[in-house]
Every structure is written in C-alpha cells, then in structure tokens.
Write a protein that binds this DNA or RNA. Structure first.
Lengths: 358, 358
DNA sequence: CTGAAAGCGCTAACAG
DNA sequence: CTGTTAGCGCTTTCAG
C-alpha cells in the first residue's frame, strides 16, 4: 500500500503538502501544486491510512454500538444509526451482548480500547458501575431506550407513557378490565418503570382496581415469557387482554397463547409493543404500539456525534420520540364471559375480511 | 488516559518492559519486574491504545462486514459472526448497503481505509470491479451467500440445490405442477443461478414442462415482488404454488397474496426460503427452507480469520451449509381445480389444529 | 534479563 | 505558499 511518502516523492513535494490536500487545506496552495499532488494520488491509488490519522488526531471517527440483543426492532435502529453515520463520515463498530451483562462489559471495554469516539448503549444491566466509570472519564456515550434512572446521561427513548396510555385506553375502550402487562425487570430502567406507571395510572383513571398479580415481570431468559403466559391462561380469573412492552415479549406471549390452545382475539386480546414489517402478516395481524425505530437510530447517532464534536459539556439531554398505536386484529371487544359463548365471532370474522395490507 | 510511558515511569522501568508484559512475552523476565509492572497497570487502570498498536503491528484486529440489507436472516448471521469474533478477540465494523451498489462501494472503501483486517461481503452487485481490485491487492475477504460466479474467492453458502430440491419435491408430492419461483436477478450470482437450475431440474425429472412465465425475476426495489405476485394471481392460468428464494421475497409474496384477497394454503400454496423466530407465528405458519444462519456466520468469520492469519495463500474454499425444509402450514395439497370446490378444506382445518409451537 | 532507539503513517506548528 | 521537524503510543530489533 502506498503511503503519504510515496505520494510526496512521486509528486516531488513534501509530505506536509500532501497532507494539506488530504485535509483540504487549500488556502495558501498554488493550483499547480494541488494538481500535481492530486494526480500522484490518483496514479498510486493512494488511500490515507486512517489508523495513522487517528493516532495523530486522537479521534477514530468510529462510534461503537452495544445492543442487549439484536431483534427486529434494533435492526431498524441500527439502520438509522448507519444512515446518520454515513452522512457524517463515521464508521460503526457493532456488538451484541446476547442479554448477558458479562458480554456487555466485555463489549464496552473492547470498543473503548479500540478508541471509538463514542458509544451508543442499550444496556442489559443498568446497575453496572461501568457507566459511572465512563462518566468520570468523560467518555461520550448515550443510552438508547434503556436509561438507568440512577444515572444522568444523554438518552433517547420513546415516550412510553404516551404509548402505554394509548394502548391501555384502546383496550379499556374495548371493554377489557382484566389486562395483564408483561415487562422485563423494572428496577432502575426508566423506560420500563414509566410504562408500568402509565399502566397503573390508566387503570386508576378508569376506576379499575390494580391487580398486582396481573403485572408480570419476566426474566430475560428465552422462554420465561411463554411460561408466564401459560400460567396466566390457566388461572380461573384469567385476564381478557395482554399488553406487552417489547417485541420479544410479544413473540413469547404469542407462543404461549398458542401452546395454551387459545385463539387471538376470540379467546384473548393481545396488544404488542414495537412494530415491524412482519406484524401485518402474523396470525392474526398484530395490533401494536409502533415505535419509529429508524428515526430513533438517526436521532441517537446525531446526538452522540454532536456530543463528540462539542468541546464543553452540556447538561444531559433526553430526546423523545412518539410511538403510535397501530390497530390491526389482535385485540377485540371483550366477551361477556370467559366461557365459550360463540358470541361476536361473526363480528370478528368480518373484521378479518377487511385486511388492509399496504 | 494513561499511556505506556506513565506505566513505565510509575513502575520505574522502561516502556519496552511494559510492552513485554502487555504482549505476554514473559520468557526472560524476572518475576519481580512482572509483578511491579502489573501492579502499576492496575493502579493506573491502564488500557493500551489499540490504535497505536495497530499502527505498529499493521493489524487492527477488526473485521468489516458489509451486508446488502440487514433482514432477520442476516441478523442471525451477524450474531454468529460476532460470536466467533469475540472468541478470537476481533471487533466488527458493520455496514448495510440498503440494496444500493453505490453505498456498497462506499462502505467497502471506508472499511478498507479504516484498515480492517478483512471483509465479509454479501454483495448487491456482483459485477463490481471492486472485487477484482480487492483480489489484486490481496485484501482478505470472503463472500457470504452471494458469490459472483465470475470471480474465484472464498465463500460460504447454503447448499441451494439441496434446499430447492427439497422444497420442490415436497410441492410436487403435494400434487402441484404449476409452481412459480421468485428470484432476485440471477446474473452472475452463483447462489441464485443454482436455485434456478435446481428448480428446472426438478421439474424435468418429474416430467413437468418448464413454463418460463412462471420464473419471476424481481427487481430488488421494495414492492416489486408484491406486484408480480398480484399479476401472477390474476392470470387465468394461475399457478397453484409459489416458491420463494429469500426471506424478503417471502414477505412480499405473502403481502401480494393478501392483497389479491386469497387465502394460503386454500387458494395457493407458499413455500418460503429462510426461517426465523416469527415464521411459526405467521398466518398461516410458514413452511420454509431453513438455512442455519447463525452457523453460517460462525463459519464465515472462522474462514476469514484463518485467512487473515495465514501467510501464504490457499486456493479459494467453498464452505457449504445444509438447509432443511420445515413443514408448517402454508403449503397444502393441490386442489383439483382452481374453482372453489371446497374440497380438502376440512383436511386443512385439522392440519391447522395440530399446531406445534416450540 | 532489561533498556535505548528507531520508526509505523500521518498531522501540525513553526520557519522560511 | 511550502518544507522541516517533532511527535501521537506503541513494538521491536539490537546492544548491553
């Protein structure tokens, strides 16, 4: 590979001059020299070695992203991040923690010593003291959709209160009063406590008593959500609707309902959280709170890049993005009794006909 | 951030010695010195700057991955790649080309001047002369699932012939004779020509004439697949089954069928390609050729890393992974006529009862 | 067994 | 307007 020296030699100039054209400092440069150098660069097909540049400039123009688990939702976020990064000449180092706090730590630490300029984090473990370290090192990072409530840092999230309320009001409007909510562990993760609070507030506002046994905190391991779903469905005082708070939980709830041999929405209504391309093709098409994932990605990258490029610190910012309930067919009017009345089924069937797949 | 000099000073030794412990060259080092240095490293919470290391060692321990489009299939591949990379101390630079050849070129070139040690490529554009350049520069790279047939290079693919045959034999066994196949443009992409050849071979073997109008090459833009599906469904000589060759095409076919107001598998059978967590939850649960994506990711990373670490070249390798037909409910026995006979529907209904969601 | 010195490829004062 | 020089933080001969 050609180096800057090769170019300098070939053009018969000093490497400072070459460096100048690389960095587009044409201010005091003769047109002639510029030409000569550009030509030499062409001829040698020279590409600057950005490792050397990074060492000198003390910036890599790479940002790191560490995700708890790359689900379809995060796929879109990642695309948004990439989009914004491309626009600004940044590269992305990717890592997935597979829901493991140990992996997460390792990922963060590897990215850090690769000298990435900043980090986008969706944490598995908000308690980790690693975030305090990052803060005290003034390492630029921003949380996405998983802000620990104990630590003040930049963050972009969906407005969970709004999303949850919209879903709850819809369900309540359909006549449901026994609505179970599925969450991942709530402690210290703002996005999650918020959703839970909104759930409770909605219930209260509508004069529905809160039944703690309908608040289901699922362990992040695979399969826990389906178990819990089945248990819930086996209870005599079965709920009539489920509200899920993330895409993976939706998957598990859907599985659990099927394993229990029930049919959505005839036997039970389900409102999911997070939307993706396949949602309209599920059985039944999923009614869900759509979070603009791509947009979140773009905004997060934008926030981080600004933060990196700013010299003096700014107080932590919180950027919110608005979710929106997309009504399809997985939630229906509550049936008068849990017993099979058969009532309202025609209703649902006509509903089914009016599929609108865009 | 502490540097190697700080550590050396603190331990009262030279930086060469510190460097030795960083690289675990303990061979001729006194236990005492080793201790001193390790302690200093601890105290300063020193992390070596890998940019400097890279510049010196001429390797970054980062591999680049450039994907045509991050779909659920590629999500799993990416996780596999990450897994293998972690095991070997490599980081990943990620990029998505959003199906655009221009983006792809830009991605490859950016990754290259970030000096990644090697590239994993799922190309949008097999004609690109960029691959010849890479080869002539002896830049280590491997294709995944998109081997151009004009260029000899390492590659890992699913055995498409086997997968396609399995799907076709299944469909033919179900009585289908008019089977349409959906592909992305075939020219010079081995994975695709292979599938097409297998499709034709199967037909011939079963004495079914090849109808070229049933071979559908879709443009990669969003929506083209759904249009084509609708057109096909409007023909008087409508096919009775669709075979798709990738996950995105499956999505589009499914949409197209719904827009046409038809029901799978009663009106038309569909066999997809690529399986993912949501496939069993679709309407109806999708019969599909499952490609072990995670495993492909692992193998690809493994192949690339070996290639990077090997000094002398080896002839290009081709690693194959075996797909497997997963029978769910989107393909059924062909109906005697295209007109609504109602026949066989009970059959399908019992089938539907025997859901097995694992 | 340990240290001095050179240099990876580039940038950025500072001279001229 | 252009070249000289001194590093960025680390590894690696080569002496001792």
């Amino acid at each position: 590979m050609a180096t800057i020296d090769d170019v300098a030699k070939r053009a018969g100039v000093s490497k400072s001059s070459v460096s100048r054209v690389l960095n587009e400092n044409y201010e005091y440069m003769s047109e002639e020299m510029k030409q000569k150098i550009q030509q030499a660069i062409q001829e040698l097909n020279y590409k600057p070695n950005s490792v050397a540049q990074s060492l000198k400039k003390k910036e890599t123009r790479i940002i790191g992203i560490v995700l708890a688990d790359l689900s379809p939702f995060w796929t879109d976020v990642l695309k948004g991040v990439q989009d914004e990064c491309m626009r600004n000449g940044y590269g992305i180092m990717f890592s997935d923690s597979a829901m493991s706090p140990e992996n997460e730590e390792e990922n963060i630490s590897r990215l850090q010593n690769k000298q990435v300029d900043g980090l986008i984090i969706n944490t598995v473990n908000p308690h980790s003291r690693i975030f305090d370290e990052l803060k005290s090192e003034k390492y630029p990072f921003v949380f996405i959709n998983s802000t620990p409530d104990v630590i003040k840092e930049d963050t972009v999230v969906a407005n969970n209160t709004a999303g949850t309320i919209e879903a709850m009001e819809y369900l309540i409007g359909l006549g449901h009063r026994r609505i179970a909510i599925f969450l991942y562990p709530v402690e210290n993760i703002l996005v999650r406590t918020e959703r839970l609070e909104a759930y409770k507030a909605c219930l209260e506002k509508n004069g529905i008593p809160i039944d703690e046994s309908l608040i289901k905190i699922c362990r992040p391991e695979k399969g826990n959500g389906v178990e819990i779903t089945r248990d819930l469905l086996n209870r005599p005082d079965q709920p009539t609707a489920f509200l899920t708070t993330n895409i993976y939980l939706t998957l598990e709830v859907l599985k659990g309902v099927r394993q229990a041999g029930l049919v959505i929405p005839m036997d039970i209504s389900v409102v999911g959280y997070d939307d993706f391309e396949w949602s309209p093709l599920l059985d039944p098409p999923l009614t869900t709170v759509a979070v603009p994932a791509f947009e979140m990605g773009v905004k997060t990258a934008e926030l981080l890049i600004k933060k990196i490029q700013r010299k003096r610190q700014k107080p932590p910012q919180r950027i919110e993005v608005m979710p929106k309930l997309i009504i399809r067919e997985s939630a229906g009017r509550v049936r008068r009794s849990a017993a099979a009345l058969g009532l309202g089924d025609e209703n649902l069937d006509t509903q089914r006909k009016s599929l609108d797949i865009s």
